[in-house]
Design a protein around this nucleic acid. Structure first.
Length: 551
RNA sequence: UGGGACGUCGUCAAGCGGUAAGACACUAGAUUUUGAUUCUAGCAUUCGCAGGUUCGAUCCCUGCCGUCCCAGCCA
């Protein structure tokens, strides 16, 4: 019995009941993106829910592109979306489906509605239609074309399809109730004229069905049992049901709305995300700071941790905002167990061991994982000149600071105990080098006399280190619920050009999430790499010292 | 002053008439060759408010208050 993708929620309760009552013998869901943009965290929850439900109940989940508005859609988006879904680890049943596969049938159902007197061709202008729709407090008024004979509407509709009328000249509307308190029911438009090349059907059609008409029918045609969507579609449900109730079709999926995933310090509006890309605020849709699936992939987040996050951001009907720390926790939790440990110095400070013979070097054995023997060990070169983290030295530090300060003994991880003798400064008073001595008896990092050292720091051999560029990311926005550009965090990216990495890593670093000991998790980024390898920091380690220091 | 939905810890959230799970965050402490991990403890006498039903209500009823969504020939 493998673990469930989806934790119990009101939708699984509905499904359980439907299965128990015999309403359905199996579960069939669908993920229906419009191919007009990239997938982001918000979509991830929907993907994990729909595909996850299908897996948990051994049912099916379709990937269906809702391609009914050709002026915003592209095959590039469709391909990127497929890649993202696969990367997250999900498989759709059979082939990829498209709403446009159903255009012929959709058209037939529209004629059926016309023949039943339940739809009519309206020749009013867009402005007239808007004005007569009314508003929240004012009922709409009937179109003067509402009661024209079905035969006339049918004739006009066929001529719309034949291309006899200009874009926007007329539309097909369902005949429901202009008095309804639900604006969606005020004779909604179900077909419009739009001369636009379509990614699948080319120029075959010049009329395209609207979402409310095509979505429910596509669901039914595919035999979807539970049509899961986000809260804002709740108002559309009566229309969803009306369409299926009034055409000849033998399947009526149940639409169920759940709360979309909102995240603190994050924007998921396609328009605003696009603004970030267009204005060059970020490095593209896959910038590691972007909440897009491609951004998270490039940053080094793993599919399993993202899925775990989606699972934890529970499914209810209450709008919610999930703290980003929840995502980071999922990432850390997985990476802590799965990442090999290596040593990398972000801001190098040169250290010379005065009593270590010049020209000499030796190998040090280091564990690749402190808790998991199966990761094995590696040999690291050690010598007279090293690089350590600049922050691991502090002039005149007190007892609470466990690292180097004059006269303090510190352990170099897996290597030796070193005592700081003095710091060398440049003419501006900046520390540029540390002079230390080492205790040859402490190889491996422990002493025969059992004396304790509080601090352990990471290091890299100056002679053997590789130069790398490190990119440290912080949240893109400063504000919990960012509205736009004004809320950007100017320090969301910090590039470190002078970082040093232990030898032997770079050539094996493809697609491996490493933990740089004490510094965080890092992931190689080959996107724009030049001569120097680039690593993205996926997430930092928890740092109780930093917290203490702030106080 | 139309329609729909929702209100349980800082943030999510379980709870489905029997006396408030869990997660993230936070706070203290232990262990530690990553100030990491791990561990231990603390963290809502109270469930938007007010009434009512009941031996008993976060769960049922009534009223009120508050929040979110909807006026694309977008999805």
């Amino acid at each position: 019995m493998t673990e469930k993708n989806v934790s119990e929620n009101f939708i699984t309760q509905i499904i359980d009941a439907d299965l128990a009552s015999g309403k359905h013998a199996q579960v069939h869901t669908r993920f229906p993106p419009e191919p007009n943009g990239f997938l982001h965290v918000g979509h991830v929850k929907s993907i994990c829910l729909n595909f996850g439900l299908a897996e948990d109940y051994q049912g099916q989940c379709n990937l269906r592109f809702d391609d009914t508005n050709p002026d915003k859609e592209s095959v590039e988006y469709a391909q990127a979306i497929q890649k993202d879904v696969e990367w997250l680890g999900f498989k759709w049943s059979d082939k990829v489906l498209y709403t446009s596969d159903n255009f012929d049938q959709l058209y037939g159902y529209a004629e059926e509605l016309i023949n039943k007197g339940l739809a009519f061709v309206d020749e009013q202008s867009p402005e007239q239609i808007r004005e007569t729709r009314g508003d929240f407090t004012t009922p709409g008024t009937n179109s003067p074309f509402r009661d024209r004979p079905s035969e006339e509407s049918l004739d006009f509709f066929r001529r719309m399809r034949a291309g006899e009328f200009a874009d926007g000249a007329m539309v097909l509307r369902a005949k429901i109730d202009m008095q309804s308190g639900n604006l969606n029911m005020r004779d909604p438009i179900i077909y419009r004229i739009k001369r636009q090349h379509h990614i699948r059907t080319g120029d075959k059609w010049c009329i395209y069905p609207m979402y409310d008409f095509s979505h429910c029918i596509s669901d039914a045609l595919e035999g979807i049992t539970h049509s899961v969507c986000t809260l804002e579609f709740a108002d559309h449900k009566p229309l969803y049901d009306w369409v299926l109730d009034n055409i000849t079709i033998d399947c009526h999926p149940q639409q169920i709305e759940f709360n979309r995933l909102n995240q603190t310090f994050t924007i998921t509006s396609k328009r605003k995300l696009n603004e970030l890309v267009e204005q060059g605020v970020v490095d593209g849709w896959d910038d590691p700071r972007m909440p897009t699936v491609s951004g998270m992939r490039r940053r080094g987040y793993t599919p399993t941790s993202i899925r775990e996050y989606a699972k934890k951001s529970t499914v209810t009907k209450k709008p919610s905002i999930i703290p980003m720390s929840m995502l980071e926790d999922c990432v850390r939790q997985e990476l802590n167990a799965s990442s090999p440990r290596i040593m990398g110095v972000l801001n190098p400070l040169k250290l010379v061991i005065e009593n270590y013979p010049e020209g000499q070097s030796e190998m040090i054995t280091a564990k690749n994982h402190p808790m998991d023997e199966s990761f094995g060990t590696r040999e690291l070169p050690f010598g007279r000149e090293l690089y350590i983290e600049a922050d691991d030295y502090k002039e005149g530090a007190n007892r609470k600071f466990f690292r180097f300060t004059e006269g303090r003994e510190v352990r170099l991880r897996y290597a030796y105990y070193l005592t700081c003798q003095r710091a060398i400064k440049d003419e501006n008073g900046n520390v540029i080098e540390l002079r230390c001595t080492y205790d040859p008896e402490t190889k491996g990092g422990s002493s025969p006399d059992g004396r304790k050292v509080k601090g352990t720091i990471h290091w890299v051999s100056a002679q053997h280190a590789d130069d790398v560029e490190l990119r440290l990311y912080d949240r893109l926005f400063n504000v919990v619920s960012p509205k736009g550009m004004d809320d950007l965090n100017p320090e969301s990216l910090l590039v470190l050009n002078n970082a040093k990495l232990e030898p032997g890593i770079i050539e094996h670093s493809n697609d491996v999430q490493y933990q740089f000991e004490r510094m965080g998790y890092f992931y190689r980024d080959k996107t724009h790499e030049t001569d120097k390898p680039i690593f993205n920091r996926i997430v930092n380690l928890r740092d109780s010292w930093a917290k203490q220091e702030q106080q």
